[in-house]
Amino acid sequence: MSVQTTEPKAGPPDPKPGIGAWGKLSRAIYRQAPEVFDNLRQLPYNLYKSIYRTTAFPKTERERSEAFFNSFLLHIQPAKIEKHALRFNYTFGLGLISFYLFLLLTVSGILLMFFYVPSVEQAYNRMLDLRSSVSYGMILRGMHFWSANCMIGAVFFHMCRVFYTGAYKPPREFNWVIGVLLFVLTLVLGFTGYLLPWDQLAFWAITVGANIAGKADYVSDHLAMIPGVPNMHMGVMMKNALLGGDTVGQEALIRFYVLHVALLPSILFFLIVIHFWRIRKDGGISSPKESPE
């Protein structure tokens, strides 16, 4: 692929020698004009070329590989892939579906943030507004809701498929561990998001959930039976840290909000990136060629 270059052509002789600065300028424009015209003609191609470094319609094997190497978004993936890895009934695309749902959640979530206010006075009314006074508000909320629910299912079944195909065996042990963290984080994201509409379901689910954390007192109570060990009231501490108080209220809402829209998604994204990187480093996804049979 060679980039075309245009030699600046010598223009026709000057019509008449100009006088002063104006003359110099008009002469310069006159001389450069053909080149600029050429550049304008090639603008679409040059523009494309400056953004994307490979042809848009790769035909040879080499161009196809280059299409992957030369794109930031595509280079995460291998340029060549084993046929087995492409079989739909091997992975059922579940990992990728989980990732797509995460992307949909990010987009719909950011849009929802433009309307939502994390305050006990306003949150619920904002949810009602979404239904009554925001264009496509319900579809937006629906996309966030359904993506979240489906993502939990997709991640669970992805984990099952990884187990049932033995894909966690060396060298992929650590990617499985990251996977378990992703599974837990996905559930925690669901939990924190559940409080935000501030309706009855939300309030009582989180009340019960936070009190479950409070049951960690069981551990510190038992530890305290060892002489010399103070009772740390671990459960009460965890519950207070989670809710910012004894009961679910404004403090809890703002905490869950920040966790849900900033902290947890960032951690999840970070882990997903490592997850994908490890798939590459572990030699692509698992294949029957790896077992002795």
């Binding site: 501490m237 207070n240 840290a241 910012g244 108080g245 004894d246 009961t247 209220g249 404004q250 403090e251």
Partner: peptide, 8 residues
């Protein structure tokens, strides 16, 4: 994260 003041 551990609250010093409780609202309520």
């Amino acid at each position: 994260f551990w609250p010093n003041v409780r609202y309520g």
